[in-house]
Design a protein around this nucleic acid. Structure first.
Length: 478
DNA sequence: CGCACTAGTTATAAAACTAGTGCGGTGCTTTATT
């Protein structure tokens, strides 16, 4: 079979992007496959094309319902009718209907939570599956242990069905992720297809300041002298709101985005940004996954993220169009303390685990016991997962080492900020890659022509601003 | 843990201190009773 012909016939492309063909070949051979491809490299083609060439349905595990809806809409637009997202967007009767005729669909999107439900699993057992895809598979590591334990339960589902090959897709692959994916997905000698995660068109910069007032002044100046579109990441919802308000007050087209906003507002803001009606977004880490905007020129971190993996995901949203883009991280002393609090606070403490366990033994209802033990909703769900398979002593040990691990990751992130060595090299080596490539606009530690980048002037507040910026940087690279 | 904010104190009028308090990220899922 000629894959390129199939690609041409079904998708209208004349050639594959790097890595795609290899991934597709492995999948068609029936191998479990881990595909590490940088963002914007056409990951969805890696399951859509083989899906058409195989018998049975393709099950795609996706982390966000909004992402599923986008992908379903996209595929329908391209003429595929046999595609559905099985999630809480559906009413009870709609869901029943979909479930009863699952085999009518070629592509089925689900959340990991859905796959933990007994009734749902029973329907999937009867279905002939050609392929199981875990999209954004780093979520297993990133969310599984302390936020969405159903990511760790995927293995349970895979154990009880007659399982087809599994394809894990991600753009983030540090050591831990590369260990967790095959382990929790129970892969059988998986092939790893890996492309370089280096984003040569992104220039990395770290700037040290003395206070959050200085940060605000810096951002105001940056935003009014350079063009977007851009994302400003903060570490709290409140800060996002404040920053957006402040920027609006000096005439910048800007909105804040975080999980505290209504879902409707979130999609409106997202589509405004997408359509170029909004130059800047001030956001928490809620803004990111599933954002496919090509021309983001800048990503500014008003506050540091908690891991290098998070950082590289966030800055990776810049410059998907391949044009020069800038990532700037603002740091002031002891910024890591807030980050530390945030990542540690939701991990249940030893006393809580013991108390919760004792209350359960006494026969108290789990919800009430969790409340008394001072466990958050998330905390309870996490502990419930661990209690299904470990003794209390083991759980406490695991949670302790999780807290330690998180702290180590934060320290690694911090060392990226304070290093005097090449930032790009540091990021790449975190992902196990080496790079000796000299790039003219590499990072703030590599004799960057930083002033040239920083003085790109914003000519006016109109739509042509984006064009001018692009022209300018193209000229800069000369 | 540390920052921002508030209420109370001081000592006789306004402002400057102090102690206490609150806050801090990611998302899936809810089919049943008065």
């Amino acid at each position: 079979m000629n894959l390129t012909e199939e690609l041409q016939r079904r998708f209208g492309y004349t050639e594959f992007r790097p890595g795609q063909q290899e991934v597709i070949e492995h999948v068609l051979e029936g191998r479990d496959t881990i595909a590490v491809l940088p963002t914007g490299m056409g990951k969805s083609l890696c399951y859509q094309l083989p899906g058409y060439l195989m018998n049975g349905s393709v099950l795609i595990v996706s982390p966000l319902v909004s992402l599923m809806e986008d992908q379903v809409a996209q595929m329908r637009k391209n003429g595929e009718k046999r595609v559905v997202a099985l999630n809480s967007f559906l009413s009870y009767s709609e869901r029943e209907k979909v479930i009863r005729q699952l085999d009518h669909f070629k592509f089925i999107f689900v959340s990991p939570e859905m796959l933990s439900r007994r009734t749902v699993v029973d329907y999937f057992r009867k279905l002939q599956l050609a392929l199981i895809v875990v999209d954004e598979a780093h979520c297993i590591s990133q969310w599984g242990f302390d936020f969405r334990p159903d990511y760790l339960r995927l293995g349970d589902f895979l154990k009880i069905i007659d399982r087809p090959p599994i394809l894990a897709l991600t753009a983030t692959a540090d050591q831990k992720v590369m260990f967790d994916i095959p382990y929790y997905l129970q892969m059988r000698s998986p092939v790893v297809e890996r492309q370089s995660l280096d984003r040569k068109n992104i220039c990395y910069s770290v700037i040290r300041l003395k206070s959050s007032i200085e940060k605000m002044a810096w951002i105001k100046n940056r935003v009014s002298t350079t063009t977007g579109p851009g994302i400003i990441y903060t570490s709290s919802r409140k800060r996002s709101d404040e920053l957006a308000k402040e920027l609006q007050s000096i005439g910048v087209s800007c909105q804040s985005y975080h999980a505290g906003k209504e879902q409707d507002d979130r999609s409106i803001i997202q589509s405004q940004f997408y359509n170029g009606e909004l130059d800047w977004i001030c956001a928490t880490n809620a803004f990111g996954m599933g954002i496919h905007i090509g021309n983001i020129r800048q990503v500014i971190h008003e506050h540091m993220p908690s891991t290098v993996a998070d950082y590289s995901q966030e800055v990776g949203r810049a410059g998907r169009d391949g044009l020069p883009s800038v990532a700037t991280l603002l740091y002031m002393q002891s910024d890591e303390q807030l980050t530390s609090f945030i990542i540690q606070t939701d991990i249940p403490k030893e006393e809580q685990v013991r108390y919760y366990n004792n209350l359960l033994i006494d026969g108290m209802a789990p919800e009430e016991a969790a409340k008394l033990a001072g466990l958050s909703e998330t905390g309870k769900r996490v502990i419930d997962y661990y209690m299904e398979r470990f003794e209390v002593v083991e759980i406490i040990e695991k949670l302790l080492s999780l807290a330690e691990e998180k702290n180590t990751e934060l320290q690694t992130m911090l060392s990226l900020i304070v290093t005097t060595n090449c930032i790009r090299k540091n990021i790449l080596s975190y992902f196990g890659e080496e790079s000796n490539l000299k790039i003219p606009q590499c990072c703030s530690n590599c004799s960057l022509p930083e002033m040239e980048w920083l003085t790109v002037e914003k000519p006016s507040m109109n739509k042509h601003a984006i064009m001018t910026w692009d022209e300018r940087i193209t000229k800069l690279l000369g």
